[in-house]
Computed example of a mutant assay.
Amino acid sequence: MKTNRFNLNTFKTNFMKTNLKSLAIIAFLGIFLHSCSSDDDATPALNAPEISDFEYGSGTDHSTDRVAYKGADIHLEATINAEATVSSITLVIHAHDVEPGEGEVEWDFEQVFTDANYLVINPTFHEHIDIPAAAPAGEYHIELLVTDVMGNSTEVEGHVQVLDPITISGFEMDESVVRGEDFHVEFMIDAVNGIHEVLVDVHGHDLPVGEGEEEWDFEGDFSEKYHELTEGEFHEHIDVPATAPVGEYHIIFTIEDEDGNTKEYETHIDVTA
């Protein structure tokens, strides 16, 4: 009987110890899970980056007028507010229903920027992107995408007008001229970088030279009166020699700006007797 009492007491003791261990484990797990839950509550998810003050325009003067010029660059700048470190900044520029003309080449731009000065919290984006001289003029779409190390991303977009650095407008010229007289030409020149040269070339199209006539080609330099102007009215009278052969003449007007960009305008005139 003593042996049975001892075994019963031992069983009760072991049972109580086992229950206490189980309760201790359950209590520990409860405290651990509560602690993790508290930690999660105390560390909310970080917000995606914010992009503000997005501006762009001609790079020559850091313009914000959303206009840029072929053969020059476009300036872009934006303020980025990021709670997590930025991992990349992507810039995309592509044409908006722009058809390349003669001598022009379709232009699209895309680059992912991972420079050290951008892979931080709250960087400032500032870049100058070259526009090819052969790019078609027209409206281009701009997209700026910022992604942080948490995988959050934000995008802003806009449009920029890419213009020719030199334009000719309001062109007027006589259709024909009697040899021995002069013909009148006028047009407006707009050159954002300033006018450097204005040249005129007149030449015949394989015209036969008759008795008493002399082959006539004309090369005129009218640069002096227009030099360095950003806007000027070309208004000139060009003499045709009385000995010039009769026929059709090809005329090329060439304007060069101070940055070396050129613009040509071609036309024809009939020289009569």
Rank of each mutant, 00 (worst) to 15 (best):
S63H: 06
G151C: 02
V120P: 04
A78E: 04
E127I: 13
H159I: 07
A82M: 06
A82P: 02
E110T: 12
E83P: 01
E143K: 13
T90W: 03
T147K: 13
A137S: 14
E157A: 14
F109A: 02
Q161R: 11
I142W: 02
A68T: 14
Y56Q: 08
E181T: 14
N117T: 14
E172N: 13
V92H: 02
S176Q: 14
S176F: 14
A134K: 15
A137M: 07
T167W: 07
G158S: 04
M150R: 08
P123M: 07
A133C: 01
E155W: 01
H94C: 05
D61E: 12
G180P: 03
S63A: 15
E77V: 13
A116T: 12
Y140H: 05
E55Y: 04
D108T: 11
M173Y: 06
A133P: 00
I142L: 14
V177Q: 06
F54A: 02
E104N: 07
L76S: 09
G59R: 00
S88E: 15
T85R: 10
D182S: 15
D174A: 10
I131M: 04
D130H: 02
M173N: 08
M150H: 10
T85K: 08
F183L: 05
V156M: 10
T147F: 00
Y69M: 10
E143C: 00
A134N: 15
S176L: 08
I74V: 15
L145A: 06
S87R: 09
D174K: 05
I74P: 07
G180E: 04
D174F: 03
V120N: 03
M150K: 11
T154E: 12
T85M: 05
E110K: 12
G138N: 02
D148S: 11
E104Y: 09
E139C: 07
G57L: 06
T79P: 00
V162L: 09
D182F: 11
L163K: 15
E175A: 13
T147H: 00
Q111S: 12
M173G: 04
P100A: 08
D65I: 01
E181L: 14
I166R: 03
P123F: 01
I121V: 15
A95Q: 12
G158P: 02
V185A: 15
L119S: 00
H159L: 05
H126R: 14
A95W: 00
A84W: 00
V149Q: 10
T60A: 13
V177Y: 04
E104W: 06
A78P: 03
G71E: 00
S153Q: 13
E83T: 10
Y118K: 08
Q111F: 11
G59Y: 00
V105P: 04
L91P: 01
E186K: 11
E77M: 11
